[in-house]
Nucleic acid binder design. Structure first.
Lengths: 216, 216, 216, 216
DNA sequence: CATGAATGAGTTTTCATTCAT
DNA sequence: CATGAATGAAAACTCATTCAT
């Protein structure tokens, strides 16, 4: 019960109308989907895991796909929330003199978010290739909202001479790839290795910074 | 027919005992798996697409999973082949004085390989999370074979003062992430964008090199 | 609300203990049953249409079938009421010298009743084949009550030389068939045609009369 | 087995590609649908009755509705076949000098057809109210093909002075209603009564003829 | 009285796999 | 070797009915 609350508290925290059973269903679904994938998880399995009748699932979610969406959508929403704050630029100006500072803050903040919601992240990464609906959501939010903000940011730091003269798209892509590469290696590919997160993130950041900083 | 041959010629080229029907089955399976995922593709669908009877599939592959493995395994084998040649180190010494040269060669070579076998790459990336068997293959080949080779390489170039003083693992991870990040963005996430591959790879490499090169 | 009252006012007029919600349930059930048939209508659908909770239906009607019966039964009762008045024969003697007059009165009276309660008629006609209970009700009322009365009537008019010398059963059957044939064609099979009811009923009656009148 | 063959031999006679199992499915479906109605018959019940696996049904018929259509459609086709012969009019001129002769021939021919395929007729009559698809089929065939032919016929006999001067539509409706009224009463409503078919049809025809013949 | 969440048995449908031809 | 009809277990989903609030 505690674990379960942890699992969903951050993403579904203000969903007050969630029944106790509904919460159990969500938790069971998250665990199952993350474990075996959406397509290979049966609703009967979810029901059993949640300790509810199979019909109960369909009372709350019209279809199995609905259940998937209702799980992933809030995750995406929460993930991008920090990027959508209106005065991000202003905040940046004040708080992060150096691109490195911004990167470090971002890295720590979003990486810890993902780690807190690791199963959901798994599901997102695993199901995006198969769910056009998720792709749409992803592109709509990530591509149009976050990306343009990042572009502004990159231009901002470029103007301050802190970034190498390459297209923003490339800088962003390499930066994000490196971060996600770390996340995926750490959590999905080789979770059994004993990672020293602090050191690893620090070194990854250093590499990125090294890469995007202009040589005098 | 031509297209189909292209699809499988590189990976299955020396599989001489493949009957015509078997080839059709493989092609149909590759297309279907890449499109909708292994779990969501039915054998009847593959049979229809291949123009054979359902039973024919099971004459050649004991189970559906067998079919998947028989498709992905050769792909992995071909992918890692260049890394496994015995005298890789020697070759490197002679051919690539600079890490940058090596990286560029690697990048071009393996990226073009993946692009030639894009559907198979898709399947590999998509199914790895769900197929422990694939994970085992992946880890066995990539982790133990390629990775140790890469470690040697990194140490080699480090000794020559061409690489920053960070753990080989980090350098490799960031390098590989950036490459795969490009591949995934280019081919899976935003295939509709009009990419200038030459420019993009060049800039990506420059960023990587910049990152891993020590500042004097 | 007005429409709905029209729908049920005639049949359920003196059912004073019907709550507002109950009325809504009945109306919703009538509409749904008529539209898609009893078996294909779900109680949840009825509840939604009626704007009540699903449980409310079962508070008033023990089962779904109960709901059906409680709808159809009063309809049958009202339909046969005129035939059951005790002194029907006397009335006839006085009012309808000619069989034709009787037929015309009957026709107009009962047809207009059915048209006012068309949905209920639909349900009755549609469900009789599937509901033995309804069949029993139908046979009990129609067959034993109405039919014997009709037999008397036919004999009465036969004695007056107004009817051809055929078995009462045949005369009744053809007469009733022709009337119902009209009703069904008009309302169920081809409701989209622009019928001139007055003309049609008149001609139908003329045909019937012609058929059952003896030639000199 | 014999019974079953009787059930389907006339309608599905030239459907040579019907498997033995398929025939059993059709027979079981016809019996079940006629008994309890389409909506209240489960496919598992049909499978059990047919002695096949439930999956077998869906191998031959994509959906349950498909099964229904594939049963009813040929029945309609066979039923209307005699009306669609091209030279119906010519045949009539020669064979049936009197409308009465035609009516008698028609009556006997089609009534015996329906009686031979009584279960199918039941299904058709019972399901038409619920299946828009069937309604379309019915209207298309009956309304446009048979009806216009009947209109010609009525006009033909009217010109010969054998029919009363009422609209063809009315004459047809009353005639057909009387016939179907007999069929339904005899077979569906009161099958337990001991009908003397020969006498009954004869008397019904006499009533109809009486009705549609002009008085001098 | 009314609600609506919950149920579990049942429904239609799918699908990997087998096997007689 | 190839076929495709047949299977039966399991999938997603429906629904009449119950019951705590």
């Amino acid at each position: 019960m505690n674990d379960q609350n942890n699992l969903i508290e951050e993403i579904f925290e203000n969903d007050d109308q969630l029944t106790e059973k509904q919460k159990k269903i969500i938790v069971a679904a998250i665990e199952s989907f993350a474990e075996k994938g959406y397509a290979s998880t049966s609703t009967s399995e979810i029901a059993k895991r949640a300790g509810v009748a199979e019909g109960t699932i369909f009372r709350h979610y019209k279809t199995k796909k609905d259940l998937l969406y209702s799980i992933v959508e809030p995750m995406i929403a929460k993930f991008i929330a920090p990027f959508v704050i209106n005065d991000m630029k202003k905040v940046l100006d004040q708080d992060y003199e150096q691109f490195e500072d911004f990167l470090r803050a971002m890295f720590e903040n979003r990486i810890s978010f993902i780690r807190r919601n690791l199963l959901l992240f798994r599901i997102l990464v695993q199901e995006i290739p198969f769910q056009p609906e998720l792709q749409k959501m992803f592109k709509k939010h990530i591509a149009s909202k976050i990306y343009t903000r990042f572009e502004d940011l990159v231009d901002h730091y470029k103007a301050k001479g802190q970034l190498v003269d390459l297209p923003a798209s490339t800088i962003i892509r390499v930066t994000v790839s490196s971060i996600f590469g770390y996340l995926i290696a750490r959590n999905l590919l080789f979770p059994e290795i004993n990672w020293d997160d602090e050191v690893e993130t620090e070194q990854t950041i250093r590499l990125i910074i090294n890469g995007v900083s202009p040589r005098e």
